[in-house]
């Protein structure tokens, strides 16, 4: 994966099995988020290949990758990325609506109840705490029943206690749904909860593969 002048990720080769949970750890600037963006089909590689469930992401254009993401991938972000103009329920409905599912509202309700926000469905993100917002984001991520869930520093904006609850919730639902989990973090405790850990240093995998 080499830019014309700057190589961000170098010589990375890895395989993640279905249902596996993997943590990508490394210091700031080590290339974690870049790797996550590429794996999730948010970005294009300049060289190399990424194959997910027999789909070669390099063969898809942006619209193809969007459809792929909608079908196969879910996200939980450090900064939650809820749409401020939508209520909690509407935020969770969004990926279902994008997939054109008929009973989006019911499914969204179900997942919001699973993250214990049944009482706050009609609240807007600005009316919620950081922990609550991240729970909405988790409900949104699982509601679309993705095969792979990508989580980018999911506790990065939360205090230790709230972060702990969120992670419990994330792993609990992940186990129930049997989703493949790829988690980017610099928090080694969190990384320990994953089945496998990949350590990135200056764009290179140094451990775990």
């Amino acid at each position: 994966m080499a830019g014309s002048e700057l190589e961000i990720l170098k010589g990375i080769s890895l395989e993640i099995k279905s249902g596996e949970s993997v943590a990508i750890v490394g210091a700031s600037g080590s290339g974690k988020s870049t790797l996550l963006g590429l794996l999730a089909g948010l970005d294009e590689t300049s060289a190399g290949r990424i194959i997910i469930n027999d789909t070669d992401l390099g063969q898809l254009d942006e619209d193809g990758r969007a459809l792929f993401r909608g079908r196969e991938v879910g996200f939980v972000f450090q900064s939650f990325q809820l749409l401020p103009a939508l209520t909690a329920l509407e935020n969770v409905m969004l990926p279902l609506e994008l997939k054109g599912e008929a009973n989006a509202r019911e499914q969204a309700r179900h997942y919001l109840e699973r993250v214990e926000l049944g009482e706050r469905m009609d609240h807007y993100p600005r009316q919620m705490s950081g922990g609550e917002q991240q729970r909405v984001a988790i409900a949104r991520a699982f509601a679309a029943r993705p095969r792979i869930l990508f989580a980018d520093e999911p506790t990065g904006n939360l205090d230790t206690r709230t972060g702990g609850h969120i992670i419990d919730l994330l792993f609990e639902i992940n186990n129930q749904e049997g989703t493949t989990l790829v988690l980017v973090t610099h928090d080694m405790t969190l990384a320990q909860r994953c089945q496998r850990r990949l350590v990135l240093e200056a764009g290179e995998l140094v451990e775990g593969n």
């Binding site: 909608g70 079908r71 991938v73 969004l94 990926p95 994008l98």
Partner: peptide, 16 residues
């Protein structure tokens, strides 16, 4: 822009 980025990450195509 950010809304669209979120929607796209959730699977919306540019046509949509």
């Amino acid at each position: 822009n950010d809304y669209v980025a979120v929607m796209k990450s959730l699977g919306a195509t540019s046509g949509a």
